[in-house]
Write a protein that binds this DNA or RNA. Structure first.
Length: 467
RNA sequence: GGCCCGUUCGUCUAUCGGUUAGGACACCAGGUUUUCAACCUGGGAAGAGGGGUUCGACUCCCCUACGGGCUGCCA
């Protein structure tokens, strides 16, 4: 039996959940869930200066909205600092790490010298690497890994392929700071090992780090996980995604009214492909997702395609689920919640409007006629079609609706009759009807509106407009 | 500076030595229509540049250009 897959998402709690981080989490989630594995969440909060509980909460909210559920409790890296220190000392005992008494000033001076000497690279070489314990001074020390100075480290990456890094370009990285706290390079490895992580799927900004981390695995004689370094997401201009590109936080997309299912679909296709598959559910994505399908080049965010994908998902959604999503959107966007009456009518209106909206605000706008109550105030364009002639036709129409069978088949002959009687095309009659029923010139089908509103409300709105 | 990664239509991508280089979004034109959208049909649109290897390169190798990352007692 193959060992079960364990993946993890390990963000730093220094801000909101970035869209790129969201995709990294999504890939880890899809990979684990598609293979009956576990998806873990670890907060990398060892940097006490920059980590905040608010940021952690924001990240959890973002993941929850995206529908990425994790297994077990959220792990705090900071809480595991004793274990990290223990491993650092274990390395010391194994002789794969050493005490380094160099101060920050000495290191800075070393680098300055190297630079002045025109060295091609300035890998710091600690004088304490092989120092006699008898010479150890009585002051705080950092623990450095004793990295090999020759040979090469090979990263066998599922996305990037075989990456070879010469060991002489890597320094003896610090694993435990002089204040006794662990560094990221040590903590990730210890945590991933202890949590049983089998596949590390993360941004390719960590590709070089993987070489140094692999040395820690080797130093501790631990199994190396499968690496998969995915390219970062760029803005539409191809530059690294930043604030000036607009929304970079996952929660901003929620507030803009993009459905989570559409976001998942779009983000999955951003940098990953399986043949011609474009629109799919998360269940389908889990079944298809593979590390081999991930591209090697950074992808750009394309809002048009995002919108198209979201529109397809809105159209696919069940009405009841859609209504529930709408409630969530209104709350997230800080808008007034729907009243019971509005919910009831909107639910009936959804089938007629959901295939014409790409986002929730657009959907609500299309369903405007179902959310308003009398009196309906026509906008300028709608008012223009309510001239005296049109109002006369409306007056003529209402009595005939009293006894009509309230179905499209029952209503259609009546409306086409009236139009014909006045020598008008149906389009000419539809305009004042839209104005009367919705107060707008652009609306869903007039039949759909009449059926959603019902006989009494329809007639009342027509009489209001005809008066 | 050094090291590492990347480069197919405007965008996301397929192709895993032999294809008229395919699909999707976007765009343009036409159709349908009850406004808008949707939908249908058609169209334009790509292998960064230069060297190799090979009977044959988008595909393999090298160089250049461009983009990105790493180079911290940050993560």
């Amino acid at each position: 039996m193959a060992s079960p897959v364990v993946t993890r998402f390990a963000p730093s709690p220094t801000g909101y959940l970035h869209i790129g981080g969201g995709r990294t989490a999504l890939f880890n989630w899809l990979f684990a869930r598609g293979r009956g594995g576990r998806f873990l969440l670890r907060i990398e909060d060892t940097d006490r200066e920059r980590s905040t509980p608010e940021a952690t909460a924001a990240i959890l909210r973002g993941l929850t909205w995206l529908g990425l559920d994790w297994d077990g409790a959220v792990v705090s890296q900071f809480d595991r600092r004793d274990r990290h220190a223990e491993v650092a000392h274990d390395m010391l005992a194994r002789g794969t790490a050493y005490r380094c008494f160099s101060t920050a000033e000495e290191i800075a001076a070393f680098r300055a010298d190297a630079e002045a000497g025109g060295a091609s690279y300035a890998v710091f070489q600690s004088p304490w690497r092989d120092a006699d314990p008898a010479t150890w001074p009585d002051r705080p020390f950092a623990i450095r890994m004793k990295a090999p100075r020759s040979g090469e480290t090979v990263i066998d990456d599922k996305v990037q392929g075989r990456v070879v890094i010469r060991n002489e370009t890597l320094d003896d990285m610090i694993v435990l700071r002089s204040d006794g706290t662990p560094t990221y390079m040590l903590a990730v490895v210890v945590d991933d090992h202890d949590m049983g992580v089998t596949h590390v799927i993360r941004g390719d900004d960590h590709l070089n780090n993987a070489a140094r981390q692999q040395m820690v695995y080797a130093a501790m004689d631990w199994d190396i996980p499968v690496w998969a370094h995915i390219p970062l997401i760029h803005g539409p201009d191809g530059k690294k995604l930043s604030k000036r590109h607009g929304a970079t936080g996952v929660e901003e997309y929620q507030a803009m009214g993009y459905p989570a299912a559409g976001m998942r679909n779009y983000l999955t296709r951003l940098g990953w492909a399986q043949g011609d598959a474009e629109i799919f559910t998360s269940q389908e994505a889990m079944a298809m997702f593979s590390l081999e399908g991930i591209g090697r080049a950074p992808a750009r965010l394309d809002f048009k395609k995002l919108e198209n994908t979201c529109g397809r998902h809105i159209a696919m959604m069940e009405d009841a689920a859609l209504l529930h999503e709408l409630d969530g959107y209104l709350a997230a966007a800080g808008k007034v919640p729907l009243s019971p009456e509005q919910r009831e009518r909107l639910l009936k209106a959804l089938p007629g409007v959901k295939d014409r909206a790409k986002t929730y605000p657009e959907l609500i706008d299309k369903a405007h006629f179902s959310l308003i109550s009398r009196p309906v105030f026509p906008d300028e364009a709608a008012a223009a079609s309510l001239d005296s002639v049109s109002r006369g036709i409306l007056r003529e129409l209402t009595p005939r609706l009293q006894n009509a069978s309230w179905t499209k088949d029952g209503l259609e002959p009546i409306l086409t009759d009236i139009a014909a009687a006045h020598g008008l095309g149906f389009g000419k009659l539809a305009a004042p009807l839209r104005a009367a029923l919705a107060g707008r010139s652009v609306t869903p089908s007039v039949y759909d509106m009449m059926l959603v509103l019902g006989r009494d409300e329809t007639i009342a709105r027509l009489e209001d407009a005809a008066a």
